[in-house]
């Protein structure tokens, strides 16, 4: 019976993540549009886009191989599984115990690898350009991400996300410098990984500045729908990750009552909406960076992560 309940809760979490993700993208677009004094499309527009794409014919270039067709499924699967591992409205769900935060980083890297290969597969200039840029950004973001993970793991004594969230809930963590640094670094990494301004502009189709869009330029139909959905889930994943690591307030416990789960869900929805609005504010406030400035931006995140670890080390040996 308990197993069925656990499975059910996990299933709800996975479906909820998938269903809520396009709304988050829509929300960010809407808030951005409102900030620019445009009316903007409805929050639910991304759903319509996805359905439209899913119904359309998928065109394949003559020079494409099986890799090109397989990549969207690999990308989507890897990101969805990674999203299932992150605590959203409740911690300690069934899959949370299967893998830790390092596994999530690895899954996301797998997705990125598959997409970069697919970008180069057709052999067009843009695909290769996008893939090489994406790899450059991720090669800088990954070390920073690992430093953040290590900082938090040192602090909480575990890499299991549920246990970390529990630790943050239980302990009066107080004013910890390392934690603040890790938070800033994680926000920088999330911005870079999701291709948001200032690293990449998700709305652009200007060749010079595209990163993610250049990679998926050859895709159409259901393949594109899968990739777009995966990108939306990834954004939600990062938001949930930040929230569960640093603000796990209101999160339900494993095996909690349905009422507790519902409260957790309301908290989670509130936090996601807040994060989406903040992202939109941030994106309207800053301009996109030159590509070569991104290295410095992400290098800053790496240094913040390292610094957080050093400070933690010092406070440990106090």
């Amino acid at each position: 019976m308990e197993l069925i309940n656990d499975l059910f809760a996990q299933g709800v979490q996975m479906m909820l993540t998938l269903l809520a993700a396009p709304a988050l993208v829509g929300l960010v677009r809407k808030v951005r549009a409102r900030l620019m004094r445009r009316r903007g499309p409805s929050i639910f527009q991304p759903y319509a886009d996805l359905f439209k794409l899913a119904r359309k014919e998928a065109l394949l270039a003559h020079s494409s191989s099986w890799l090109f067709r397989a990549a969207p499924y690999v990308v989507f699967a890897a990101i969805w599984v990674a999203a299932a591992l992150v605590p959203t409205f409740a911690s300690g769900l069934m899959f949370n115990w299967a893998a830790d935060i390092l596994a999530i980083v690895a899954l996301l890297a797998t997705a990125r690898f598959a997409l970069a290969l697919a970008g180069m597969d057709v052999g067009t200039a843009f695909g290769g350009l996008g893939a090489s840029r994406e790899m450059m950004i991720s090669s800088l973001a990954e070390p920073a991400m690992l430093m953040i993970v290590f900082t938090i793991a040192l602090l909480a004594g575990t890499t299991q996300l549920s246990l970390i969230a529990q630790f943050m809930l239980d302990q009066p963590v107080g004013l910890r410098v390392s934690l603040g640094l890790a938070l800033i670094a994680l926000i920088i990494v999330s911005v870079a990984e999701n291709g948001r301004i200032p690293v990449d502009n998700p709305a652009t189709h200007l060749e010079l500045t595209m990163v993610h869009e250049a990679m998926v330029l050859e895709y159409s139909g259901r393949h594109l729908a899968l990739i777009e959905a995966a990108a939306a889930v990834k954004l939600l994943l990062y938001v949930s990750l930040i929230m569960s690591l640093f603000f796990p307030v209101g999160m339900a416990q494993a095996g909690g009552t349905p009422a507790a789960m519902a409260t957790g869900m309301a908290w989670w929805a509130g936090k996601v909406v807040l994060a989406g609005a903040l992202l939109a504010f941030g994106e309207t406030a800053v301009a996109k960076m030159r590509l070569f400035r991104v290295a410095e931006f992400l290098g800053g995140a790496l240094v913040l992560g390292l610094l957080g670890m050093i400070l933690l080390f010092v406070s440990r040996s106090l």
Partner: peptide
């Protein structure tokens, strides 16, 4: 917020601002 935490936070912040 105990005493140590605040002291540590402030001097750590000075170091961070150096970066």
């Amino acid at each position: 917020l105990d005493l140590l935490d605040v002291t540590y936070f402030l001097s750590g912040s000075v170091l961070v601002s150096s970066f």
